[in-house]
Design a protein around this nucleic acid. Structure first.
Lengths: 194, 194, 194, 194
DNA sequence: GGATAATCGAGACGGTACGTCACGTCTTGCT
DNA sequence: AGCAAGACGTGACGTACCGTCTCGATTATCC
């Protein structure tokens, strides 16, 4: 019916809800994460959650976005592309290896599969910033001409994501290194100038 | 308590259940897919489903595996790697573009995220055969030495899967072609023999 | 905490609240009568209601008392008891037959069943004046000695009220007449003076 | 949508629910009576209640009807009308004086005010049998001709009910006796035969 | 007439109960 | 025995109101 007034929103409650969401996510996992449990843990009425979010997925998304925003997303530029890519790829592997983070990411991924609008939110607010940071770094590198940089970024993260999702194999630093080498081979000018 | 006797299993019911599962997945989507709905649609008691499957995920998996088995998985070998890869990649893009297939795949993906054991089943029965077919084709090609072929396969499918899951961009034949070119550039010997 | 100052009370709001209460009672019935709805309809904050009333029942009571005060309660005294009682009983039947009034009376009756203190208020402010008016009229009549006049009044209204509450039969003028005749038979001296 | 099959109803659950309802009604009163509490107390799912009853009122009604059916409703016929009426009226006063019974009766009365269909049920299954028993006794008595016996019954119970509902005075045996005397005076032939 | 304090409209808040939904198990005939 | 049908205990869902609270805006007395 009527839309709530964000100006009157209780910041304390908002924070408590996101904090409780993160806590429950790591403690009991996504399966045991219910709106009721979040509300109880945050000392908040369920309606306060439903007032500001569309459902569990939206809450979890906000919880993750807030967490991600506290971490920097900028890539270093050492001048050597391989070094920089190794850094970010190994960091991503580490994130996937962290059980808590991995569980949370799985959680939100489930939601994106069920809710298209949420998927757009996740893509734009959570994923895009990270991918764009890599894309930005690629722009300063000397690559084969005519490349679609979005595609190159996906060449790096796609296989990682694929292996994590489908658990087709171990996610190690070596695996990340191998991906970087393959990607660099794919984008390096065929006849490097002297 | 007691384990059911597979010999007495009603093949008619089994087929009706899997058929109903596929129908509901494409008709109403994964959201409306419940064991009760499948049973009603199949004209079957719920217990008959629970007797033979562990839950929704297992049923959906079987439904998909059965469908996949009807399609061949063998890759052609024209002698030209690029041609063969283009074929399989474009076919995959087409599958993802088919709303019915896409919805079904999303369904089973949700389940793999929630159930580790099911994930293994999906990986081994549904995914591995397809990936192995590509891997087999790669073995007959002349590539840079020392490559991890599993990784190369993921270099091809990972970005596709990534883009499909996260909807970061359109899934077109051009995109598939670009991926094939990048992958081939990545695996081709640096100094091709004359 | 602190007690509100009645001197500063907004008469406009008070009237709007009682008016809205009456309107909602007749329009949508008691089921849809909530403090929130009253406040919205009256263009008033909920707190303004809670500041001056204990709850729904108290508001409804005031709404009815105010309405009742506008109607006179005095019984005529034509000298003939039967004539006068017929008048008041038929009037009561008419009130019960009016859907709006009937609904409102049901509403407040519910509240008296749930809240003993409110019941006392209703009894003293709403009911007693009407019953006392009849009692007063009875005092001027020549009756059998030793009668409990309160009981006689209840002999008249009790059956009416019973039939209205339990819907055990139609509430007609004839029914009222019959009651009056029975009651008069019950209270008339056995050996009437010539 | 579909209507449940009464043949498959679980008698154990039915009994547990009605028993729990009676227990909660006397223990904590009607205010604290919730469907959830009944279900918990009965060791039953809420849905099992909603499957067979329309709501709280219907459950309470059944609980009371069941209790009432265990008590006999037949009036004695000593040959002396006054004696028999005194018995039943004093018994009714006693019921109203019992806090548990009184509370339960208030409960179901609230519901009848809110739900017309339920009111009919209460009238026909709970009230009518009792009133009809009295009516039957009246038929064997020598009364003034032309009386509406339903009205006479209401002349007895109406005032009692009125006083109980509105708490306009104490409900004592003396009060019951007075009512009986008034009613008998109202219905006795004016010129008794010798 | 300006200061100041309470009331006001509005509606967010922490709660409780609601009535519905799907789960996975159990029960009842039927085949 | 397996089966169709569906009732069952369980527990989360999302909604509706409750009565309290917080917020500026608006009175209405008191200095």
């Amino acid at each position: 019916m009527s839309v709530p007034d964000p100006a009157r929103r209780n910041e304390r409650s908002r924070r408590a809800i996101l904090e409780a969401t993160r806590a429950l996510l790591t403690e009991t996992g996504y399966a045991d994460l219910t709106i009721g449990a979040i509300a109880a843990r945050a000392g908040v009425g369920k309606q306060t959650i439903y007032r500001w979010w569309n459902g569990k997925g939206a809450v979890v998304l906000d919880a993750m976005v807030e967490a991600a925003e506290n971490a920097g997303r900028e890539l270093p530029d050492t001048g050597d592309l391989r070094t920089d890519l190794l850094l970010v790829m190994r960091a991503t592997v580490a994130e996937f290896a962290d059980p808590a983070l991995s569980e949370t990411t799985r959680a939100i991924t489930v939601e994106t599969l069920l809710d298209e609008e949420l998927a757009a939110q996740v893509r734009d607010r959570l994923l895009r910033p990270q991918l764009d940071a890599v894309k930005k770094r690629l722009r300063t590198a000397r690559l084969r001409p005519g490349l679609d940089l979005d595609q190159v970024v996906e060449l790096l993260f796609g296989p990682l994501y694929h292996r994590w999702m489908l658990r087709t194999g171990p996610l190690t630093d070596d695996y990340a290194d191998g991906l970087v080498d393959l990607a660099i081979a794919a984008v390096t000018p065929a006849w490097p100038q002297p």
